[in-house]
Design a protein around this nucleic acid. Structure first.
Length: 421
DNA sequence: TCTGGGGTCCTAGGACCC
DNA sequence: TCTGGGGTCCTAGGACCC
């Protein structure tokens, strides 16, 4: 076949060429890359949290699952190696993953710590390789240079590429050309499709849609009539029509919100106790915001009942802040409105929205002066927290939460107070 | 898996305004 | 004063992701 007709064929099969890359048991993979003697063993990461966060395929084969307690794992599978997680390392591996993929395309989306998408459309001519060859090279480079394996899917849309990488884990390699989509989708159950969650697959199953093929073969008209935007978009992508572009994250810190939520034990119906947990979350969220150099103007707080009912409320401040006091004042008002003494609560949370860099805040001279003092104070607070740990300094309103959290650790060390039981 | 934590985006329905 | 009908904006909560 001539080069020209080969190119035409490739063009037809890949109007766009999208790759999805997924690290296999990524956290464990990173650990094994530096501890190769553990390869082939049952390995679990998550010692510091007391539950399995990630596990090797050998551990999975034994029956270890996500969230299983370390205590139980030790008891039932004493040979399993238990490691603490090391997020800084995983972040470094993750960045290297993106760099390596970046050799083959400048359109790489760092989707999560262990996943990325790449749009390699047109790179076949630049690199003088077929799309499949490019994909194989990427996988080869990742596997050999990072010392852990990756699964890769190559197809014409993000949803299809993601179905591909998922198809044969670990170390999978799946190419789904346009002419192969229908056959491929017959073997993909509807619940496995990216962005179709439990609710989506429930409602689709009720309509006798069991595989991705069943959905893809419905008409546009039918989907538009019976389903909302998310399913409509997935339907298009399954048919090879690109809806979700590959977006490279150019800017660091383009985060839209910061959340801090925590479930407490025992559950509580005591308003001052529950508010104290909320207060602690607000303090933590503000500390993270300051670390990122951001400030927030709109925020929402919520409480969740024992039976998982969610009640919340939103507040708009007059100007941005990165300090907890103003937020707490408003949060108190919302809290008093939404708290119901007859219910028992399990979780509180705060979400800080409309984030802006601190430098972009607009303030009057007077406010500026007021906040300089506060800024200095919080510099000190942040420094102490860095040195002595996050519970070293806190607001009075968070006191009861701290005491409760720390009780679980038996004792607390507060520099100014000594040890409190 | 009777349920952890941090994110993003969508939408139904109320409030408000002609 | 009562009434219809339509548009936009907002937000609480849900669904989904890793």
């Amino acid at each position: 076949m001539s080069t020209i007709s080969q190119n035409t064929k490739e063009q037809n099969e890949f109007p766009r060429a999208i790759i999805h890359i997924d690290g296999d048991a990524f956290f464990v993979g990173c650990e094994l890359a530096s501890k190769p003697w553990l390869k082939g063993e049952s390995v679990v990461v998550g010692a510091e949290r007391g539950i399995a966060c990630a596990f090797s395929y050998e551990a999975k084969a034994l029956g270890i699952h996500r969230g299983m307690s370390i205590f139980e794992i030790k008891k039932r599978y004493p040979k399993t190696v238990i490691l603490s997680s090391n997020y800084l390392d995983y972040g470094m591996y993750s960045n290297r993953m993106v760099q390596i993929v970046g050799r083959y395309s400048n359109k790489v989306e760092h989707y999560s710590v262990d996943e990325c998408f790449a749009d390699i459309t047109g790179m076949n001519e630049v690199l003088e390789m077929s799309y499949e060859e490019i994909a194989r090279n990427i996988k080869h480079d990742l596997d050999t240079e990072l010392g852990t394996t990756f699964s890769l899917g190559l197809s014409v849309t993000k949803v299809l590429a993601k179905c591909g990488s998922k198809h044969k884990k670990p170390s999978g390699f799946m190419v789904v050309r346009r002419s192969e989509i229908q056959n491929f989708l017959k073997n993909v159950s509807i619940g496995k499709v990216w962005r179709i969650g439990t609710e989506g697959s429930k409602s689709l199953t009720r309509e006798k849609i069991f595989t991705a093929y069943d959905l893809a073969s419905k008409s546009d008209e039918w989907v538009r009539r019976n389903h909302s935007k998310p399913i409509q978009e997935i339907h298009s992508e399954l048919n090879g029509i690109n809806i979700f572009g590959v977006h490279r994250h150019e800017v660091e810190g383009d985060q839209k919100s910061i959340m801090c939520t925590r479930t407490f034990h025992p559950f509580s119906r005591d308003p001052s106790q529950v508010f104290s947990y909320l207060s602690k979350n607000i303090e933590e969220a503000c500390a993270r915001m300051r670390k990122l150099g951001l400030s927030s103007k709109n925020f929402s707080v919520f409480i969740k009942t024992k039976d998982f009912r969610y009640i919340g409320g939103e507040v708009k401040l007059l100007r941005e802040t990165s300090y907890p006091e103003e937020i707490l004042n408003e949060a108190r008002k919302v809290f008093d409105k939404i708290f119901d003494c007859d219910l028992i609560y399990r979780t509180t949370g705060v979400r800080l929205g409309s984030l802006k860099p601190i430098a972009m805040q607009t303030e009057s001279l007077f406010e500026e002066n007021k906040n300089i003092g506060k800024g200095r104070m919080y510099d000190v607070v942040d420094n102490i927290s860095n040195k002595f740990g996050e519970h070293s300094v806190f607001l009075g309103s968070s006191m009861r939460a701290i005491l409760r959290y720390e009780k679980d650790k038996k004792k607390i060390g507060i520099p100014s107070l000594g040890e409190v039981r």
